[in-house]
């Protein structure tokens, strides 16, 4: 019997250098593109694994157990990404995949994730990356928390304290630190200031290799077509196009000293230094 579950929501995105737009359809080109775990989600995974490492010995004193679960909604190939999460120390993974989920905006995504999370019992904490590299909205976390009716703290930069019922977290805003104490279950989103993600372990990779990842579809989640995918979405991306960049390049010439002087003068003129 697992007493505490930490759920980490992650997403597969195109590798940073690989974002291309199909000029005909105005959508992101996904075929033949190298995919990665959304970079912000790697911090969510690491934080989940660290919390387990920290809490497991304490909980075991009272015979209790803790488990980390990675969850994603995406095409079947996202299963590979979930295996990477397992190689990094996550215990289990679930893939939400169904053609009917396609075209979901943040609302429909959050709803689908929420229904999946309700299938688990004893979950205490949901950790998400603060935003994705492709969608860039940062909305799924707060929407998910709202649907589950739990507190949400975005941009957590460190977890100061945690027990089965409460946690204390700190976050960095533009001009101040904020410290919150919140009741569990709760959801938080994290960015790169919270930790340095580890390199996968050999035992993790071997475990991941043999792991069968369960796939949950719309029927399993008892969801109606009207609530999910494109139909369940309030927003729809109808066109993606590249902004036109207007860069002005000026090459500095002359001796290095002269170039430095000129560069310094220019930066001063622009009020940068």
């Amino acid at each position: 019997m697992v007493d505490i579950k930490i759920i980490v929501c992650i997403k597969q995105v195109p590798g940073t250098t690989e974002i291309k737009i199909n000029p005909e359809t105005n959508t992101l080109v996904r075929e033949g593109i190298e995919t990665v775990i959304n970079p912000f989600d790697t911090y969510a995974i690491e934080e989940g694994v660290r919390l387990k490492e920290k809490l497991a010995p304490l909980l075991s004193q009272t015979g209790e157990e803790i488990e980390t679960i990675a969850l994603t909604m995406g095409p079947p190939q996202s299963g590979e990404m979930l295996k990477e999460a397992i190689a990094l120390g996550i215990d289990k993974a679930v893939l939400l995949s169904d053609r009917a989920f396609a075209g979901a905006d943040t609302w429909a995504t959050a709803l689908t994730l929420a229904e999946a999370i309700k299938k688990f019992d004893d979950w205490k904490l949901i950790i998400l990356g603060k935003q994705t590299l492709d969608g860039d909205t940062g909305q799924v976390g707060p929407e998910l928390a709202q649907k589950l009716n739990i507190p949400f703290i975005g941009y957590a930069s460190s977890i100061l304290d945690i027990n089965k019922n409460r946690m204390t977290i700190k976050r960095l805003m533009e001009d101040r630190y904020e410290t919150f104490e919140i009741r569990l279950p709760a959801a938080i989103s994290v960015g790169k200031d919270i930790n340095i993600p580890r390199v996968p372990s050999l035992r993790g990779k071997l475990k991941a290799k043999n792991e069968a990842i369960p796939v949950w579809d719309k029927n399993y989640l008892n969801l109606d077509q009207s609530q999910i995918g494109l139909e369940g979405s309030y927003t729809q991306v109808i066109k993606i196009s590249m902004p036109e960049h207007h860069y002005e390049v000026k090459m500095l010439e002359g001796s290095p000293d002269h170039q430095v002087d000129e560069l310094y003068g220019k930066l001063k003129e622009l009020n940068i230094v």
């Binding site: 580890r198 390199v199 372990s201 050999l202 035992r203």
Partner: peptide, 20 residues
């Protein structure tokens, strides 16, 4: 420490003593 966490020291050691 990272090398340790990645199980690389386990390569030296027999399985019954925590190795690979």
């Amino acid at each position: 420490k990272e090398i340790g966490k990645s199980d690389l020291f386990r390569l030296f050691v027999p399985e019954q003593y925590g190795g690979m």
